[in-house]
Simulated assay, not measured.
Amino acid sequence: MPINISILLATYKRPEVLNRTLASFSSLHSDSVTWDLWVVDNAVDPSTETVVKKWAEKLPIHYLVEPKAGKNNALNLALPGLKGQLVVLTDDDIIASPAWLKQLWEGAQRWPDHMVFGGKIIANWPGVAPFWGEDHPMNQSLFGLHSLGEKEMPYRDNLLPYGANMAVRREIFEKGYNFNPSVGPNGEKVYRMGSETEFLKRLERDGYIPIFLPKAVVEHQIRREQMDMRWVAERSFRSGFTDCAGAMPDGKTLLSVARYLWRQLLVALIMNYIYKIVPNKRKKFSYFVALNRARGKIYAQLSHDEAFSKKIFHKKLLKIIKA
């Protein structure tokens, strides 16, 4: 029987989280839509294999192992074997709504001239909502939440689907597109985020405009450690690093860094001290995120100047900004 949809995800040492994801797949109401699931273990983790084997009794799972570090290496490993007409890309920490696949498939049929689709991603908080508020605008980028509202429509204004809930017709991969191994999680603490975004931007440049399908919904499992301010700081730092990675500083510079970034850092630092005194949790959180994003941007530009990076002062400055 032909496969309509192939779901593809990479996983890295999160067996408990993956178990909840696979459990949600067992409740999918796909009707006549045929599908299979490709799980690529990027850690060669025995616990992950145990979880996958348990669910293989109930789900149409193909299990692959990619020992080479890098989420995109893991995704690329599976591409040649995918048989689904529509390839659904997601993460190992989602909870799929029962109608998820059905909505993606039917949406793709309604837009036959389009090759790329994105769905809605909402938060699944670990018990209580965060102290800064579950409606804080920065939650979107911190936790990969995504929505364009309730209307089905093409993406616009430089917006693109998010990696935890997107679909691409298999023809895209048959044309030679794949994922860039230099982007995305790779085992390092500091890396360039946005592996799916980089992929989608290439498609957009080539004329492939995505369609937003609001009824195709998944929840992102927010874990308790992600509510810790240390995790928020690291995530924000990587986000800032991604914004400036590989880019030359624009305008006037100071110590190989755009001056406006030093101003951003100084303002955010001052505001962080102010909101340690003034009781406004939302603003305190906003400036905490802004401070760490500024650190990430400065670190990216300092790292870009190879000649300057050989100087002892520069190395110490890199260490201070990263700490």
Rank of each mutant, 00 (worst) to 15 (best):
T253I: 07
K201T: 12
V289M: 06
D157E: 15
L213S: 04
S303K: 10
T253L: 04
E219W: 10
L159V: 15
K322G: 07
S141K: 10
V88C: 11
Y275P: 14
S309M: 15
A294T: 05
S256N: 09
M1Y: 03
V51D: 07
G296H: 04
L75V: 10
G194T: 00
E106M: 02
V257E: 04
Y208F: 15
K315Y: 06
A69D: 08
P67C: 00
P210A: 15
M138Y: 09
V168S: 01
Y275A: 14
V278E: 13
S26R: 07
G184C: 02
V289L: 05
P181T: 14
D41P: 02
G176C: 02
L318F: 07
Y162S: 11
E188N: 14
K71C: 08
V88K: 03
N272C: 10
D228F: 01
D91I: 03
P67V: 00
V257P: 04
L28Q: 04
N186Q: 09
F313G: 03
P80G: 02
Q103N: 08
M166D: 08
Q264L: 13
M248Y: 15
L203P: 05
K322P: 01
V217R: 09
A300T: 03
L82R: 01
I209S: 02
A167I: 00
L22H: 00
S32V: 06
N158P: 02
G251D: 11
L18S: 06
S6V: 07
